[in-house]
Amino acid sequence: MSFWEKGYLATGLAVLVAGSGYFAIVWKQSLALGSLAPPNWILFSAYLVVLMALSGVSFLLLGRAEARSDDGPEVGDFDERDRLIRMKSLSATSHVLSLGVYVPLVWFLFHQSGDLLFHSLIGGLVLAEATMCFLHVFNYNRAY
């Protein structure tokens, strides 16, 4: 498994952990309120910070681990195959992201709740980002 493959796997898991944490808090707040909790800056910012911290730490730890292995000199290198995989994964992710935006927008036409639209768009982003990471891992293991 290459440095990037491990990094994307770790980041994909981090995205799912941070996303689950975010929605668990929204769920709890909504139960306490008796209706859907409105978004707040603190929770949204905390989600972004936790997400960036988890993915940053995973790449940092992997970089350190790799530096001690035989693959040391290759850590962080990005060659033609990495670029091809990145391009293919991001291109497919853009379709998932489009779907993750279309569905909440169409749904909004029926419920007209800005809060629900906000949370469902975050859901779409989480889904797209996790898909992007796991598509990288998948593409690293398939043939071209």
Partner: peptide, 23 residues
Amino acid sequence: SRAGDLSGYVLGAGVIIGLLHYP
């Protein structure tokens, strides 16, 4: 593929701007 890849960033950036604007 490259065009699809970059257009995803346009969509992502737009959605994030919307999400930051909403609260």
